[in-house]
Amino acid sequence: MSKELNRFLGYVIVLLCALGYLFYRYLYLNPVTDFHKEILVTAAIAILSTCLIGIYETIKCQGKYFWTSVKCSLFIPNKETYVSLSYLLRIKLPGSERYFLVKGAKVDQYQPVGGVYKTVGNKNIYKEWEAHPKSDVNNPDDLRFFVKAKYIPEIIRWFKSHRDRETDVWREFYEELLETNILSQKNFKTIRTEFLSTQENILSKQNRFNNEQYHTLIYDIFQLELTPDQFQELEKLFKDNTFTEKYAFVTKDEIEKECFNNHQLKIGQHTKFTI
């Protein structure tokens, strides 16, 4: 249990004690001595005020993740949870309203460029959170792993801090589009991206993997800002072929339907986060 939640529970217990005393004092205690009137009642009210402020500050500090912290610490601390912390890149062709997707390497579907972040430096999630990797053990730095639910609040806080992890999209962009020769390194030596939003799916009940009971998925969404040369290259790809074995240009409607080409080709469900 986190220090913040311990402090919150401490405030609640002391607050209930103060309320219990005041309830007893005004409803049952008779006669009432000056000690109760002048000392204990004043102390109880002061304690009550302090606890209310402490509870408010604790909830404010946790923000929208407060109830997640309570749930993870008190109700499902040892439940197996799959965690994936990743980014997706929206590549939209101006004028045509087409979204550029690539063929998944592991799943037979088209999806946005992107993938899971990696840790950097000396961050050891396996030691700190007792995590164990997904089946892809050849990439131990990937932020895709299984962990007990009690660590989820700490993981979210760490991820939001941007410490000891990747923070940009270049690695997957290079691997998925330049190494595969879909795009030229001449026009895409560098890229400029804009952060759009973060999409979250915290502690949803799932059983896709053995012994897994919950999913926690966080996606950072970025948009690629195209230079004139980059735009022209993408436009030429679109005019040559709307889709190939490597890539596809699809519409918003097709993304929402999760398929295209007369329902024959699948679009990844998470692609909806980029529209």
Rank of each mutant, 00 (worst) to 15 (best):
N261F: 12
N181A: 11
A149I: 01
F100R: 02
W67R: 13
L234Q: 09
K148S: 10
L226A: 06
E258S: 13
L226R: 06
R7K: 13
I39D: 06
V32G: 02
W129K: 12
Y174C: 10
R144P: 07
T180V: 07
N262R: 15
L48Q: 02
Y126P: 07
I218L: 11
H215I: 05
R7I: 07
E175R: 13
P77V: 01
V70Y: 03
F75T: 01
F100C: 00
T119P: 09
V107F: 08
L89T: 10
A131M: 13
Y174G: 07
T33N: 12
F159G: 11
I125W: 03
E235H: 15
A149N: 03
H132V: 04
D253A: 11
T68N: 07
V83Q: 03
I39Y: 04
K64C: 08
V120F: 04
L29C: 06
N30K: 08
V250A: 07
A131P: 06
I202Y: 09
N261A: 15
G268H: 14
C51F: 00
T193N: 07
I221Y: 09
W158A: 13
Q223Y: 03
L177T: 04
H132K: 08
I55W: 01
R157N: 14
I59N: 00
C259R: 10
Q199T: 13
N211V: 05
Q185F: 11
S197E: 13
I221H: 08
Y219L: 10
C72S: 07
T271E: 02
I218W: 07
I91V: 10
G10A: 08
E97H: 15
F249A: 03
F23A: 12
Y151M: 06
E194W: 00
C51A: 03
E179W: 12
N187V: 11
W129M: 11
N138E: 14
S73M: 01
I76Y: 06
K257R: 15
Q213D: 08
P228E: 00
E154V: 06
E176D: 01
S86H: 14
A105D: 12
I152Q: 05
I218V: 15
T190C: 09
E179V: 12
T271P: 14
P228N: 10
D229P: 08
I221E: 09
Y110F: 15
T216Q: 07
T42N: 10
P31K: 03
T193H: 06
H270P: 00
G121Q: 05
G114A: 12
L48N: 04
Q269V: 09
Q62E: 11
A46F: 05
D168F: 05
Y117P: 09
Y99N: 02
Y24R: 09
Y247Q: 12
R192W: 09
